[in-house]
């Protein structure tokens, strides 16, 4: 924050590191499990280190077809995030900054569409997809995800647009930009932190979604969460916690890397620069 004393700053950094460690503790534990032999996972008392093994990473990598399913997950998550971001951000902008009758009602309806319990949606969606011959295809899963991502995007972006100074687009429009020009050239760049954060959230939600992926896919479009649920559901031979933890680690990595890469767009001052300019 602004005007931090040296001490306050150190305390805040210390607090941030501590909070991160607390939140990451279960994850660190998961990474630990992923390198253990099955017999060493449930030791009494708990042991941190034991015989190291990479079997958990190799054994199920092929069996659960991790690689193709990872590709599927990337396609579905990216596709649904992009479609939702475009549709949602435009709608959020219209609801925040444009003159229209019933903007409030519309915003409410879009939001309320998210209130439908997922279990009520998945069966009819499957029936429609089957009718149209679209089961087990990316487009079906992407569209299903878009329905639950769009309301979130609309709402989050509405809030971020709202905190942008009005003068921004006024200036742009006075300069001869149309509505679209003002939106894409001025508003979007200025709300980049909000857009990126919302997009990360969309990707994460699509990344870990299970129920829809499970029902709407059979083989070609199966995503990682379905593969994980499959490993977890082995109630024949014994819990497969090693492989589960390993696949858990593997699925987390791409998202963390993605987040690290886009961090550089999460910089402060874009809106500042624009208003001052």
């Amino acid at each position: 924050m602004v005007s931090s004393g040296r001490l306050g700053r150190a305390a805040a950094i210390g607090g941030a590191i501590l909070a991160t460690l607390v939140f990451l503790f279960p994850v660190i534990y998961m990474v630990g499990i992923s390198f253990k032999l099955p017999r060493d996972i449930f030791t009494v008392p708990p042991r941190w280190f034991s015989e190291l093994t990479f079997d958990n990473y190799t054994s199920y990598f092929h069996q659960a077809r991790i690689l193709p399913r990872m590709v599927n997950t990337v396609i579905v998550a990216a596709g649904s995030a992009i479609v939702s971001m475009v549709a949602g951000a435009m709608a959020g902008y219209a609801l925040t900054r444009m003159r229209m009758r019933g903007a409030g009602v519309m915003a409410g309806v879009i939001l309320a569409s998210r209130a439908v319990p997922p279990i009520a949606l998945v069966v009819p969606m499957f029936l429609v997809a089957r009718r149209l011959g679209l089961t087990d295809q990316y487009i079906t899963v992407i569209l299903a995800y878009v329905t639950f991502l769009v309301p979130y995007v609309v709402w989050l972006m509405r809030a971020f647009f709202r905190s942008l100074p009005k003068e921004l687009e006024e200036a742009a429009m006075l300069d001869g930009c149309g509505r679209f020009g003002a939106f894409f050239r001025i508003i979007v760049p200025c709300s980049l932190p909000g857009l990126i954060s919302t997009m990360i959230y969309c990707i994460i939600l699509a990344w870990e979604e299970l129920l829809f992926a499970l029902i709407l896919t059979n083989d070609k479009a199966v995503t990682i969460p379905v593969a994980i649920a499959g490993i977890a559901a082995d109630t024949e031979n014994g819990g497969l916690w090693g492989p589960l933890a390993a696949v858990g680690v593997l699925t987390v990595l791409p998202v963390v890397i993605f987040a690290l890469v886009v961090q550089k767009y999460l910089v402060k001052g874009l809106a500042d620069g624009a208003t001052k300019g």
Binding site: F23, V27, Y29, M30, E208, I228, A245, V255, V256
Partner: peptide, 18 residues
Amino acid sequence: RALFLIPMVVAPVVAGGV
């Protein structure tokens, strides 16, 4: 900030088990 995203990404069934 990037690390803070991890809890959201861990599949529920794995998170629940851990």
